[in-house]
């Protein structure tokens, strides 16, 4: 069992959990993820590790409640325990040889971008963080980014906080003003990552993206997480989750991520209306 050590709400839907998982914490590195199962009836869902403490044997996750499993996760309080946590999974972020990087996060993607940005900054890489949100109310991790990166630029779509506009606008402005990046890292909704990659392709800047695909085992056993990179099938869980964004087949990824939409929406209705988030059959 994997006990919840602390729980902190970052905004109305995003929450930061610290979970006891000593075997995972011992080996965790930035860019890697875990797969968890809340209880016996639960599905296995992947979540990026936002941090870890190998001495205390804990890992951090930041998740957004978007559907049944994440809503169930919301019901867990400090002292409760998750049934299963497995990891670390996936390849860690590659940082070798990098001196200057721009990290672009969109919405919840900022939670996935945070460990990458901080991990790079901690090894001495200069990191410009562009964190984009829809509006002021949902801005997360501002203090963490300020402490864990070289420069922080916040953008909101409606201009209610930071600069008005999209993350791509800000990235373009920085590049146009003469900032030189060895690499751009983009994490967010696939559409945003696709646009970032289109932009950086024009300037010839290598761009790494972190892909979210449907996963079951996370060890290369099911093939459900296959994504097309440079015309070739790769398994996001073991070959990724980070890939060269300019080689990703975005349309197919977006399509594959919609596979279970109907069932998921039905499940949501069950959580919200029937059980108020708590399972009724045990």
């Amino acid at each position: 069992m994997y006990e919840i050590i602390s729980k902190r709400r970052l905004n109305s839907t995003i929450t930061w959990l610290v979970i006891k998982a000593p075997l995972v914490a011992r080996k965790a590195r930035p860019g890697q993820f875990i797969i968890l199962r809340t209880d016996e009836y639960g599905e296995r869902i992947p979540l990026t590790m936002a941090g870890h403490d190998s001495e205390k044997g804990t890992i951090d996750i930041i998740y957004q409640a978007v559907g049944k499993t994440t809503l169930l996760l919301d019901q867990f309080e400090v002292g409760d325990a998750l049934l299963d946590v497995v990891g670390p999974l996936g390849r860690p972020t590659e940082m070798e040889g990098l001196k200057r990087v721009a990290v672009v996060g969109g919405g919840t993607g900022n939670a996935l971008a945070y460990p990458i940005a901080k991990g790079m900054y901690d090894t001495g890489i200069q990191v410009d963080m562009i964190a984009g949100f829809q509006t002021k109310d949902v801005v997360i991790l501002e203090e963490e980014f300020r402490a864990g990166t070289s420069n922080l630029y916040i953008t909101t779509d409606d201009g209610s906080y930071g600069e008005k506009g999209f993350t791509t606008d800000k990235l373009k402005a920085l590049i146009e003003s003469g900032e030189k990046y060895d690499e751009v890292v983009a994490v967010g909704p696939p559409v945003m990552m696709k646009f970032v990659c289109q932009l950086t392709a024009k300037y010839g800047i290598k761009t790494v993206v972190s892909l979210t695909a449907y996963m079951v085992d996370g060890t290369g056993m099911c093939g459900g997480c296959r994504v097309v990179i440079g015309g070739e099938n790769k398994f996001a869980c073991v070959d990724g989750p980070e890939f060269d964004g300019q080689l990703v087949n975005w349309d197919e990824l977006i399509q594959r991520n919609s596979f279970y939409k109907e069932q998921e929406q039905e499940d949501m209705v069950h959580v919200c209306r029937l059980t108020g988030g708590v399972r009724c059959h045990d």
Binding site: L23, V24, R26, K27, V85, G87
Partner: peptide
Amino acid sequence: NNAVVGMSM
């Protein structure tokens, strides 16, 4: 369980 040898150790 939940121990992927090669990753967890």
